[in-house]
């Protein structure tokens, strides 16, 4: 019984990922795509957790945690690059520089 519930939620999660892919392909602006990619990553984490429940192995949980971390870092990197055109200076310094220069873009 439990296996069926897990299986159906697994396939539903795969369907949700496919829908997110559609937004990722079509997304007119960059922000649509960033949101879609971030949400896709979250759904991958959930998919892995459900999958490791389904097959009864704990390995997937570690990987799901790693994905959650990587997803966050990648989203921040993309947004930082888009806003500041640079990855090298720390975010704290950048807001400082903007405050000094009065560069309110």
């Amino acid at each position: 019984m439990m296996g069926w519930v897990n299986l159906i939620s697994l396939l539903a999660m795969a369907l949700a990922m496919a829908i997110m892919l559609g937004r990722l392909f079509a997304g007119p602006t960059l922000y649509d795509r960033v949101l879609a990619a971030n949400s896709f990553g979250t759904k991958t984490v959930l998919l892995l957790l459900i999958f490791s429940l389904l097959v009864g192995r704990a390995d997937g949980v570690d990987i799901a945690l790693l994905y959650a971390l990587i997803n966050f870092v990648a989203t921040i990197a993309i947004l930082k690059f888009f806003r500041y055109r640079s990855l090298e200076v720390a975010l704290a310094q950048m807001s400082l520089r903007r405050a000094i220069d009065g560069d309110d873009e």
């Binding site: 960059l30 960033v34 997937g60 994905y67």
Partner: peptide
């Protein structure tokens, strides 16, 4: 930009498949 994001997504999917 979109291609870089899609490549990240490609990796995520293939990693899920490897699991």
């Amino acid at each position: 930009f979109a291609i870089v994001m899609l490549m990240g997504v490609y990796s995520l999917i293939s990693a899920a498949w490897f699991v």
